[in-house]
Amino acid sequence: MVGALAVTVALIVALSPLLRRIALARPTARSSHTVPTPQGGGIAVAAGAVAALAATAAVDPAGAPAGLQAAAVAAGVAVLAVTGFVDDVRPLPPGPRLVLQALAVGVVVAALPGDLRIVPALPEVVESVLLGLGLLWFVNLVNFMDGLDWMTVAQMVPMTAALAGLAALGALPFEGGVVALALLGALLGFAPFNRPVARLFLGDVGSLPLGLVTGWLLVLTAARGHLAAALLLPLYYVADATLTLGRRLLRGERVWEAHRTHFYQRAVANGLAVPQVVGRVALTNLVLAGLAVWTVVRPGAAVATAAATAGGAAVALLLADLGRPRTGRLSSRGSP
């Protein structure tokens, strides 16, 4: 974790001049920021995590991801990182972008263990298709939700920390815990540069691979019999992105176009400062992380039901709070 943090910080400092030249996000009518800001910090986040994993493999080969799964995830991350970087520099049409995302997700799902089952009652083919669609949606929603300074940090830091804790409890393969710690360190290294008002954005080069890797870790958690924990950890992101997409579909809007109608974006538009929004999100995610750990420490239907109810209530309260009208001025800027 410390290694990932250090490498990420060093790379951000080294790459910032280049990113300012070739990957500058200029404000538009749909942007939350008001000054041109470099994006592409995800390059350093991904590289920091990979460097930490490589160092782990050198010190303790048994503790690092290996085999077909690791190769598939690495290939998927590479495809999404290149796709995201190209899109950050020169926006891609939605069709080719979606095809490349589906390719990356398909490779990861195909490499999952043959005996991996989450819902045994479903035919294997049906479950594989549903996993692929779910992971594809998760990759996109992580990208959609990266639209405000510190938003990804507020979601992913509690989630990766919780995943590392779940690995320590045996709810996730040990190697998955190592990956979670590497991501946690990289995100902590990125956080100071993305603090409102951000000097650097994550960009698609970071958000797309981050969605793929964390989604893969959640699948592994669910496959070990901890479906409630796997659903609780990303619950706010899933709820905000899915409800927003559904609302836009009902309105007949072009859902592939940029917009500012997520709950967290509406909260800023209605007068909440960016730190107030991400603070609420981070607090809710800490609650969800605690509930997820509870379902692992005290397994059983009663605890899972209680945790799901409490988690759903916490997210519903957050969405209601973010969505309600307010008066006031925007005091901090967000990312695109």
Rank of each mutant, 00 (worst) to 15 (best):
A78I: 07
G311V: 10
R254Q: 14
R260D: 15
G165S: 02
R20M: 11
A314E: 05
N140V: 12
A81G: 07
A316I: 13
P173L: 10
V219F: 08
V255N: 02
P196Q: 10
N270H: 14
A46D: 08
F190R: 04
A121Q: 14
A171I: 03
V277L: 08
G40I: 08
A72C: 04
N194Q: 11
V278S: 08
F263L: 13
A182D: 03
E124A: 14
P120V: 14
T8I: 00
R117D: 09
V99T: 09
P113T: 07
V59I: 15
L18S: 09
V129M: 13
S335T: 13
S128R: 15
G176E: 02
V9R: 04
T242W: 10
A228R: 04
A46I: 12
A154L: 09
A310F: 07
A25I: 03
D321F: 02
L183Q: 00
G323P: 04
D87A: 08
L141G: 08
W150M: 15
L19Y: 11
L172C: 06
L5C: 06
L217P: 07
G206M: 04
V7A: 08
P336N: 13
W137K: 07
L202D: 02
G311S: 11
A313S: 15
P209L: 05
A223F: 15
L330D: 12
A222S: 11
A167P: 07
G95T: 15
A29H: 15
A29W: 15
G312P: 01
A161L: 05
Y264R: 11
T309S: 12
I118K: 05
V59D: 15
A198V: 05
A52R: 03
G177S: 09
V109P: 03
Y236F: 05
A111Q: 01
R324P: 00
V142G: 04
L330A: 14
A168N: 03
L187T: 07
V13T: 12
H259Q: 11
R280P: 01
A164V: 11
A74W: 02
R30E: 08
G170Q: 04
R333C: 14
G48L: 11
A222I: 03
